[in-house]
């Protein structure tokens, strides 16, 4: 059959065979996850209990249905979690019949692999990298699915779908493999591993619209509720045992919700009345600051994320 240019009929046909933007993103993510499972031997899905990893777990179910997830989920537990997140994590794992592995930053500290930061409210954010890498080593995982999105942060905007990590788990942003069409090169030497980011092309708004369209359940902290918080240099931190009030600070009750789910010690809330998905989508669409603006861990320097990623962070 020789090549023929498109006729009008064929152009019209392409219209009736149109996939919505979200369905295109979904199909791409499913393709990426299947590709990683086909190319690697010991995959793991990094699960934080946040909305992105919930969407990722949902996409994984779709990718491998009717089989169960052909890999475990790994939670790197800082010990500074919102109780609601852990409760939800266990609920979801049970519901979808997944296997969950939990490794704790506290164990890494106890084993002398990591040292707690100094100061009144040490963040364990950076220490997660140590725990993550020792879990990867312990289980000999050769690929880890991460829920990072390119729209989150400018160093992440330069990330590949299939991201190579050397034997020290380092990311070398200046020497990334070119990624062409949808041909993903997961070849590696022993001891190296890959991070695969199926949600690379999703934005925060896409995630929320998808959660709404697919009617996914979420931890309650994403929705508006009353909570005692302290305003620390513009970051609204929830009252918890991980926060020590500084001089002049005090807790006050506010109507808030969280846009991201991280540690209680560094994840800031936003004042919001949005108590359902439609309200949240409207709020996200109109938002004027990024979701990571409320993360104290990203405010440390301009290259904070790049530096953490190079060391092997999520």
């Amino acid at each position: 059959m020789g090549y023929q240019p498109w006729t009008m009929d064929e152009t019209d046909m392409s219209y009736s065979y149109k996939l919505s933007y979200l369905k295109q993103l979904e199909a791409e993510s499913i393709y990426i996850m299947r590709e990683a499972v086909a190319q690697f031997e010991k995959p793991v899905l990094l699960f934080s209990g946040g909305k992105d990893s919930i969407v990722m777990a949902h996409l994984a179910r779709k990718a491998f249905w009717p089989a169960k997830l052909p890999f475990p989920m790994l939670h790197v537990d800082t010990g500074h979690n919102f109780p609601e997140t852990i409760e939800f994590r266990d609920y979801l794992v049970n519901k979808i019949g997944a296997r969950l592995v939990v490794r704790t930053v506290q164990d890494s500290i106890d084993q002398g692999l990591a040292v707690e930061e100094k100061g009144p409210n040490p963040s364990r954010n950076g220490l997660q990298t140590v725990t993550l890498l020792s879990a990867i080593e312990e289980f000999k995982f050769d690929v880890a699915f991460g829920g990072a999105r390119r729209d989150e942060e400018k160093a992440r905007a330069k990330e590949r779908f299939f991201s190579h990590r050397d034997e020290f788990s380092q990311w070398d942003p200046k020497n990334q493999r070119p990624e062409l069409w949808h041909l993903y090169n997961g070849r590696k030497n022993p001891g190296e591993h890959f991070r695969v980011f199926p949600l690379s092309n999703w934005t925060e708004l896409d995630i929320w619209q998808y959660i709404s369209e697919e009617e996914l359940e979420l931890p309650s902290i994403y929705f508006s509720h009353q909570r005692e918080i302290v305003n620390r240099q513009g970051v609204l931190l929830a009252k918890s045992e991980f926060i020590t009030l500084l001089k002049g600070e005090q807790y006050e009750e506010k109507t808030i919700r969280f846009r991201t789910v991280g540690d209680m010690s560094c994840t800031g809330a936003v004042e919001s009345p949005a108590s359902n998905l439609d309200d949240i989508i409207a709020e996200v669409a109109a938002a004027r600051v990024t979701e990571r603006a409320a993360r104290a861990d990203d405010q440390r320097s301009e290259a904070a994320m790049e530096d953490r990623k190079k060391q092997g962070y999520f």
Binding site: R150, D151, K154, A157, K158, P173, S200, N201, T203
Partner: peptide, 10 residues
């Protein structure tokens, strides 16, 4: 600019 950066808008 060294590497491809992906940006999203609508």
């Amino acid at each position: 600019t060294i590497d491809v950066a992906y940006r999203y808008f609508a």
